[in-house]
């Protein structure tokens, strides 16, 4: 069989042989390109390594011993941080999980249903709705934070969890991505068949379309999770009660106190370490979902 193929299509076999030899040639490692990437990796890991070392020192050692030398006080620091104002730090961690986790989940569901409807339904005004949503992608979110504050103040919602959660649920970019995923992964025939069997539209979306869009939705979730977790200005503006702070605003406040009380610095550093560990784990576990195709269709449009 293989001989026959070779006889009939010699050019293909030739090309395959050439490709194989090229592959063998490429196997040779390049120390330069490997080296450059390793230097980049070291640059990126360095602050993480430093915070691991620094959080093992007590406040006198922090500024006196060599900065990359580990010490033995990591556990003491964690206990001290946990006792700070009756476990306020862990309250911040919980708040962050609520803001980023619940916020991103809600955002993903709403992006998914909007994207699904915009991809799979035909209705009057569809083009206008999509164009207006798409313009939202270009609106710099941070610019909105201050007017959002004044509008929420009108209805008495500032300084509540809602003031941080609600503004971040709408994500025009998430809707845009969801529309692409829905168009690509939910066959119209399946929707039609479910309708013939009498399934309700919400049921079809939640039970049939949503699972089909699965992997794409994980990407939207991750994007939104990082966006919320990264958004410093919104909670900084909205919240006055430090019981409601996310970790970022809380640690930034602790750092401010450090100017007058240097013992705060150890708490800040330990807090920084503890708050990035779960994220790093989540990143490593979900790494395969980070296939970021920003340019898909966006430039051509």
């Amino acid at each position: 069989m293989s001989i026959a193929t070779t006889l009939i299509r010699p050019d293909r076999a030739q090309r395959k042989a050439a490709r194989d030899s090229a592959r063998v040639f490429r196997q040779k490692a390049s120390p330069v390109s490997t080296g450059i990437l390793i230097i980049g990796a070291i640059y990126c890991l360095f602050p993480v390594f430093w915070v691991l070392m620094a959080s093992s020192k007590d406040s006198s050692e922090l500024f006196s011993t060599f900065t990359l030398m580990p010490s033995t006080h990591l556990w003491d620091n964690i206990i001290e941080l946990s006792q700070y104002r009756d476990g306020l730090f862990w309250r911040w961690v919980l708040n962050t999980a609520i803001y980023a986790g619940v916020g991103a989940l809600a955002s993903t569901w709403i992006s998914a249903i909007c994207g699904y409807v915009l991809a799979k339904f035909e209705f009057p005004g569809k083009k206008i709705v999509f164009s207006i949503l798409l313009m939202g992608v270009l609106v710099p979110g941070v610019i909105l934070a201050i007017p959002q504050y004044f509008l929420l103040a009108e209805v008495g919602l500032t300084n509540t969890m809602w003031s941080v959660l609600l503004p971040q649920i709408i994500s025009p970019y998430g809707i845009y991505l969801a529309r692409i995923y829905a168009a690509a992964s939910v066959p119209t025939e399946v929707i039609e068949a479910s309708r013939t069997e009498g399934a309700g539209e919400l049921y079809i979306f939640n039970r049939i379309a949503l699972p089909m869009m699965g992997p794409g939705l994980v990407t939207i979730f991750l994007f939104q999770f990082v966006a919320v977790w990264n958004n410093f200005m919104l909670p900084y503006i909205m919240l006055g009660d430090d019981q409601l702070f996310p970790v970022t605003v809380g640690l930034s406040g602790l750092l401010n106190q450090g100017a007058s009380a240097p013992s705060m610095y150890t708490l800040v550093i330990t807090g920084a370490l503890l708050s990035i560990i779960p994220l790093i784990i989540m990143f490593l576990v979900l790494q395969r979902y980070w296939k970021v195709d920003l340019a898909a269709g966006a430039v051509k449009a």
């Binding site: 990437l37 980049g40 990796a41 070291i42 990126c44 890991l45 602050p47 993480v48 990082v226 990035i276 994220l279 790093i280 989540m282 990143f283 790494q287 980070w290």
Partner: peptide, 8 residues
Amino acid sequence: AIFLPYAV
């Protein structure tokens, strides 16, 4: 390693 700081 290079992508990791995006989590911070």
